[in-house]
Every structure is written in structure tokens, then in C-alpha cells.
């Protein structure tokens, strides 16, 4: 019977979360799978000999880099299409500034149907609509429970920036939950 290596066990434990993170970031299952596979390949190829305690920050750092690269590539492709005269208005908006832009979950969820949505569905939509950096900070800090210091290394930014992105994420989530049945549960 085949024995699982430590790195394989680590991947099995983390691949689903990584996939959900990538899917929320890209809103595309196939892209998310590619990003996770690429992340796993890089971790195994380059860092499997590192102590296993180093794998979690490395793994999620590689993943976040892949996600950010994907956003940048989307922005570049959009600019090229624009330059070649093949753009449309939606694509024109999709550039590096998307990393900081905000949107509202209520744009996704029709008002009249909000009452029927379960809290988890509403929260998932709200998280997926956070700006990219806020989304990264929120998922790494709140979900993965990495420290501010660890998160700053994964996001390649200062601890202060992580705190800012995280607090903005909380504020944005609360704002986006305002018009839902769960307003009172989470507002100040």
C-alpha cells in the first residue's frame, strides 16, 4: 500500500481551501484549478526539502502571487485588446486598479431575493466581491488565521497595509450586509 509523503499530506489538507480562495478571487473554476496546481507544483519542486513548518506560509504566498499575477495578466490583455480596438466597456475597467476598487454584493444579489438567501450564501458573495487586496487580507487573517506579520510576507506588503486592507474588508462587508436580513447581527 502506498504511503503518503508529508508534502502530499500537506497538499491534501490545504488544496480545497486553496481552491476556494482561488475560485473566489478569479470567479473561474478552471483558472482556480490551474493556479492551485501551479502552486502545488512550485511548492513540491522547490520547497519540499524545507522544514514542514515553512510550508503553510510558502504555499499561500505562492498562491497569492499566482492570483495577483493572474489579475495583472487580465489587465495587460485588456489593455492590448483596447489598443487593438477590440475592447468593450467592461474589459476597459479591468486593469491593475481592480486591486483597489470596491463593489457591492447587492449588485450581484437582486433585492427582492435577499430574504431567501441563507447567511452563508450572502457572506460568500460579499467576500467574493471585496477588492482583491482586501479579499486576500481577509481570507489569510480571518480564515487561515495567519498573523499580521505572516500575512504581510505573503501579500508582499507592510504590516500596516495588511491592517488597513483587513479593517477595510470588515467595513466593506458590514456595508454590503446593510441591506440584508442580517444587518443587525453585524452592524455596530
Amino acid at each position: 500500500m502506498k504511503t503518503l509523503t508529508d508534502i502530499e499530506k500537506f497538499l491534501i489538507k490545504n488544496e480545497k481551501r486553496a481552491f476556494v480562495m482561488a475560485r473566489i478571487a478569479t470567479k473561474d473554476e478552471d483558472v482556480a484549478l490551474d493556479l492551485v496546481q501551479d502552486t502545488m507544483l512550485k511548492l513540491v519542486s522547490k520547497y519540499s526539502k524545507k522544514p514542514s513548518a515553512e510550508w503553510p506560509p510558502l504555499f499561500y504566498r505562492i498562491l497569492q502571487s499566482r492570483i495577483t499575477d493572474w489579475y495583472r495578466r487580465q489587465g495587460t490583455q485588456s489593455r492590448w485588446r483596447n489598443w487593438l480596438g477590440q475592447s468593450n466597456n467592461e474589459e476597459d475597467e479591468f486593469n491593475d486598479s481592480v486591486l483597489e476598487n470596491q463593489s457591492n454584493v447587492n449588485d450581484l444579489l437582486p433585492d427582492e431575493s435577499l430574504q431567501g438567501f441563507e447567511l452563508n450564501t450572502i457572506l460568500e458573495s460579499a467576500i467574493s466581491e471585496l477588492p482583491v487586496r482586501q479579499k486576500q487580507a481577509f481570507m489569510l487573517r480571518a480564515w487561515q488565521e495567519f498573523s499580521t506579520k505572516e500575512t504581510s510576507a505573503m501579500m508582499k506588503c507592510s504590516e500596516g497595509s495588511v491592517k488597513t486592507h483587513y479593517s477595510r474588508a470588515i467595513a466593506t462587508l458590514k456595508e454590503n450586509l446593510k441591506d440584508t436580513p442580517y444587518k443587525r447581527e453585524f452592524s455596530q
Binding site: N120, L123, W143, I170, F186
Partner: peptide
């Protein structure tokens, strides 16, 4: 809020 978000994720 974070607990509820974690549960959803």
C-alpha cells in the same frame, strides 16, 4: 462577522 465568514468559507 469573522466567525460567520469562516463558517461560510
Amino acid at each position: 462577522l469573522t466567525s460567520a465568514a469562516k463558517a461560510a468559507l
